Simulated assay, not measured.
Amino acid sequence: MNSVAKKIRWSRFLNRQSGRGLIVPIDHGLTMGPIPGLDSLSRIESWILHPGITGVIAHKGMVERLGARGLLRGQGIMLHVNGMTTLAPAPDSKELLTSVERAVRLGVDAISLQINFDGKNDAHNLRLLGAVADEADRFGLPVLTMLYDKVKSSQPEQSLRRLRHLVRASVELGTDALKLGAPEELSLIPALLDGVQEHTAVFFAGGEKCEDEELLELARSVALYGASGLCVGRNVFQRENAAAILNRLQQAVLEDSGLPPSRSPFTDPGQQPGRLALRVAND
């Protein structure tokens, strides 16, 4: 991307030395209710200012409340603009709930939205992403698309083709960054990201709560294969000691100087893209 405004804002989500990011989404409350770890502001306050966190994703009400408490300092802030509760009959069809103009008024640095493709809502998802990307571009705000394919297939190759098609559709409509899961078969990862990371920032989700070593293996892979970073929620705020896991993630994702820096559309074009190998995640 050539927009200076986008580059400046996106830089707030990345570590200066490694060029990678550790973003924590806390948009789960709208979807899932007051789940453990997000059931009070005091719980969030205990970890949200950790120096390893380069960015936070939240809905407008939480941005207002956390900002009023002085808890959104020194990191990039994304406004999550769509959603749907799990109580709804079609939870994968996420509706637009606020505007890019509201994001500007809140002072955030980027826009986030989630699109889940269930095989029936493609038109809705593409219209939504296209409209949000156009409006965000008008204000110079980067867009992160959380992209999940909910259509299951017994053939890994077919799933890969579907996901690559959906990734390309998101790129064609103007998204600047992607949050993805990965195939269970790690051998398919190079084919999944082939040609993507060189022009679009790619983060990978932490998924449902897992053991520390499984999460850290994911984090090390993010750095090793040159992805843009990790976007992990429940595996941070649902930990008994969130600060402890953040310390380890910070070291694995942001501080391993022996690994190549991330390549994204906002970094030096002379850097070479890498490839990412992780596990399936759906945070």
Rank of each mutant, 00 (worst) to 15 (best):
residue 252 A to H: 04
residue 124 H to M: 09
residue 186 L to D: 09
residue 59 H to V: 09
residue 253 V to H: 01
residue 92 D to K: 12
residue 161 R to S: 13
residue 111 I to L: 11
residue 179 K to S: 14
residue 19 G to W: 04
residue 62 M to N: 12
residue 28 H to P: 03
residue 271 Q to W: 11
residue 6 K to A: 02
residue 170 S to Y: 06
residue 134 D to P: 00
residue 109 D to W: 05
residue 203 F to H: 04
residue 267 T to D: 11
residue 261 P to C: 10
residue 32 M to S: 13
residue 61 G to D: 14
residue 180 L to G: 01
residue 172 E to N: 13
residue 180 L to W: 00
residue 48 I to G: 03
residue 251 Q to S: 13
residue 80 H to V: 11
residue 202 V to A: 06
residue 246 L to W: 01
residue 106 L to F: 00
residue 230 L to M: 09
residue 264 S to Y: 01
residue 160 L to Y: 00
residue 144 L to S: 04
residue 240 E to V: 14
residue 201 A to Y: 00
residue 64 E to Y: 09
residue 223 A to I: 07
residue 112 S to Y: 04
residue 112 S to W: 01
residue 109 D to S: 08
residue 29 G to F: 00
residue 16 R to E: 13
residue 86 T to A: 15
residue 230 L to D: 01
residue 92 D to H: 13
residue 212 D to A: 15
residue 151 V to T: 04
residue 159 S to L: 13
residue 231 C to Y: 08
residue 250 Q to K: 12
residue 236 V to R: 02
residue 162 R to K: 09
residue 235 N to D: 08
residue 123 A to E: 15
residue 107 G to D: 07
residue 200 T to P: 07
residue 221 S to D: 14
residue 83 G to E: 00
residue 208 E to L: 10
residue 215 L to N: 06
residue 109 D to P: 06
residue 91 P to G: 05
residue 36 P to A: 12
residue 130 G to Q: 12
residue 125 N to W: 02
residue 201 A to N: 01
residue 206 G to H: 05
residue 107 G to L: 07
residue 1 M to S: 14
residue 81 V to Q: 05
residue 175 T to C: 07
residue 21 G to T: 08
residue 50 H to M: 10
residue 103 A to I: 09
residue 42 S to R: 10
residue 243 A to R: 15
residue 167 V to L: 08
residue 176 D to P: 01
residue 23 I to S: 08
residue 141 L to Q: 04
residue 283 D to I: 05
residue 259 L to G: 06
residue 166 L to S: 07
residue 207 G to Q: 01
residue 145 T to I: 12
residue 253 V to C: 01
residue 170 S to R: 08
residue 66 L to Y: 02
residue 155 Q to L: 11
residue 185 E to G: 13
residue 112 S to E: 05
residue 269 P to Q: 05
residue 282 N to W: 12
residue 4 V to S: 05
residue 95 E to T: 15
residue 249 L to A: 10
residue 126 L to Y: 12
residue 209 K to A: 14
residue 82 N to S: 14
residue 142 P to R: 03
residue 142 P to N: 03
residue 230 L to V: 06
residue 1 M to I: 09
residue 178 L to I: 03
residue 215 L to W: 06
residue 118 D to V: 10
residue 146 M to C: 14
residue 49 L to E: 13
residue 259 L to F: 07
residue 201 A to F: 00
residue 258 G to E: 11
residue 60 K to Y: 12
residue 270 G to I: 08
residue 17 Q to W: 02
residue 28 H to C: 02
residue 223 A to H: 05
residue 222 V to G: 04
residue 219 A to N: 10
residue 140 G to D: 05
residue 260 P to Q: 15
residue 9 R to K: 15
residue 261 P to F: 11
residue 150 K to H: 10
residue 4 V to W: 00
residue 81 V to C: 08
residue 214 E to S: 14
residue 8 I to Q: 09
residue 250 Q to W: 07
residue 220 R to M: 11
residue 123 A to V: 15
residue 200 T to Y: 06
residue 158 Q to C: 06
residue 216 L to V: 02
residue 60 K to M: 10
residue 16 R to D: 11
residue 273 P to W: 00
residue 269 P to T: 07
residue 192 L to A: 08
residue 188 L to S: 04
residue 31 T to V: 06
residue 226 G to C: 06
residue 19 G to C: 08
residue 227 A to H: 11
residue 35 I to T: 10
residue 200 T to G: 09
residue 270 G to L: 12
residue 148 Y to P: 07
residue 27 D to N: 05
residue 33 G to S: 09
residue 36 P to W: 10
